[in-house]
Amino acid sequence: MGGDRAPAIRVRELRRTFRVAEREAGLAASVRSLVRRTHRDVEAVAGVSFDVAHGEVVGFLGANGAGKTTTLKMLSGLLHPTSGEVAVLGCTPARREREFLRQITLVMGNRNQLQWDIPAADSFEMNRAIYRIPDAEFRRNRDELVELLEIGDLVRKPVRNLSLGERMKAETAAALLHRPQVLFLDEPTIGLDVTAQKRIRAFLAEYNRRTGASILMTSHYMADVQALCSRVVVIDAGQVLYDGGLRALTTRFAAHQTITVGLPEGAVDLSGYGEVVESTPDGRTSLRVPKAQASAVAARLLAAHRVSDLTIEDPPIEDVIEQVFASRPAPTAPVTR
């Protein structure tokens, strides 16, 4: 996509410093801090650069406090950067121009924007007025979202009576009524059961396909990332650790692979070949071996035993991400806001 068009999101050397009051625990320290407060500058985002092309879905990964939410807030105009450049659809988010705000949306899985005591349909109506969506377009968008998310009967119930999964679907619909071109999703599936997660995931993929919108999303569920994102940006301690394809991330950071062999003769001690992760009585054994040696070990196994089946697998993406973080020195006192 895009060709030589400017990217939908362009971030260069983005920094954000927070000034936090510092005091030690205890009454004496509390009293002391009333008189003289000591401050410390904490760099929540420390020089982040990346682009997101039009129509691209990018996973934004990192541990708690890595600077993900702070970055999303700067991208959606809620926080001013301390320094660096941000352009979203050619606009500077911090100016919070209406033209810009009309084209973006922000969804935060752990905070709801629908009013608690009124039906979602009424909140939709309020958003129609706020975004000044023409009537016909509003009805079309609403009906499409309601159908895709399967929330037909739910939008008439007060939001307080909805389950978490139902509410999140309604939240998502409300956030997309104005057909934004850029979506900032902060943990859009947090706390949902597997079915609801899948539903939201499938929906987001469909929305992206239909509208060509760009999506930047954070999630702790790797299934979200694997299902939706062709590319991931991994940050830690406010800096980009990795920016590229999900597969390439595994290739680069996974030091080990898992070889699973099935032996018809039953359980055999294979610890000579590598670290035994799992061994079942019916003769299936999983071995963790350094990636560079995986094919050689497999060849030796095949030569030495009667093998009914053998697979070589990359580790689960969660483990890879863990590996990425482990390759960095521990961050100092992360702070988010």
Binding site: S76, G77, L78, F100, L101, R102, L106, Q113, Y131
Partner: peptide, 8 residues
């Protein structure tokens, strides 16, 4: 945050 990201 949701109020401040609205175009109004």
């Amino acid at each position: 945050d949701f109020v401040l990201t609205k175009p109004a």
